[in-house]
Design a protein around this nucleic acid. Structure first.
Length: 274
DNA sequence: TCCCAGGCTTGGT
DNA sequence: ACCAAGCATGGG
């Protein structure tokens, strides 16, 4: 069976919030309290108690991949202090306290782009079930501990499926958008290059050349996969928050390098009041 | 050029 | 009927 790595639980780290705050759609918490999902072509299983976190990987894999995947390479004392400097105290302080433990993950770029295309005009349970259907139908199948899992399909696999193949999974008007994304990414658009060499603004312009990708989907991709913590996705929840606490407008360019993390705190806070 | 309104797939309530 | 982590489109 698995080799389990045990690590002292870091400050400001809570798997329940990380996987439940709406940034990630392919992890589920099992009856054994282990969060399980597929990323980077393999199954990750993660759990926690008050003292430790537990992962089914080696120390070497953790250092090379999962540490960054789980957002453990940033000092959130520093992040939170920077956020507070850029906001009026009040709701932001409450949001930081409510959302303590959230980490912005570094998910796979292509999967993240498609996931947020699918998220348009959808609710989270349906987003999850659509992504799962796309993987089951067009992703590569593999086995782990005797169970079957599916990778997220490549751009080429989505092109082979075609718009009709994706519509058959009830993706609706988003099917054509996924095809447009697949065409770009299999024909010159390099998401890793956007991550490594582009500014946030350049990345936003580039991603918005995909049909069906606007500022919201682009900034989610930049924030959750492409290392741009300054990206500030504005969705209906954040619009409500801006109306309610910030007098209807917010100058996103004044929010600092961690604006996107502030956005996650506000998003989590506002939804928790529901 | 910018702003605004209504449409779009589907499923849950 | 209305709503859900939006976007493309056309008209003014």
């Amino acid at each position: 069976m698995d080799n389990i790595l045990c690590i002292k639980r870091p400050k400001h780290f809570d798997l329940d919030k990380i996987f439940d705050c709406g940034q990630c759609f392919r992890f589920e918490k099992g009856d054994d309290n282990v969060w399980e999902g597929v990323a980077y072509g393999r199954v990750l299983r993660a759990s926690q108690d008050d003292e430790n976190i537990y992962l089914n990987c080696t120390k070497d894999e953790f250092d090379k991949l999962w540490q960054k995947y789980l957002g453990l390479d940033l000092d959130y004392d520093e992040v939170n202090a920077d956020i507070i400097k850029h906001f009026e105290p009040g709701v932001m302080q409450s949001a930081i306290e409510a959302g303590d433990g959230i980490r912005i993950m570094r998910q796979e770029p292509w999967e993240t782009l498609c996931s947020f295309i699918i998220s348009q005009n959808n609710n989270i349970p349906r987003i999850k079930s659509l992504i799962s259907a796309v993987c089951r139908n067009y992703g590569e199948k593999f086995e782990y501990n005797g169970k079957e899992y599916y990778a997220f399909p490549t751009p080429e696999a989505l092109l082979a499926a075609g718009e009709e193949g994706l519509k058959a999974l009830k993706t609706g008007f988003r099917a054509g958008y996924l095809i447009s994304a697949a065409e770009h990414c299999s024909n010159g658009m390099d998401l890793c290059k956007i991550r490594d060499e582009y500014t946030y603004e350049q990345g936003l312009d580039e991603l918005c050349t995909i049909k069906g990708v606007g500022p919201k989907v682009a900034s989610c991709t930049l924030l959750f996969a492409l290392d741009k913590t300054g990206a500030f996705p504005v969705d209906v929840w954040i619009k409500r928050t801006i109306d309610k606490y910030f007098g209807g407008s917010l100058d996103v360019s004044s929010l600092g390098d961690y604006a996107g993390i502030a956005q996650q705190y506000l998003f989590y806070y506002e939804r928790s009041l529901k």
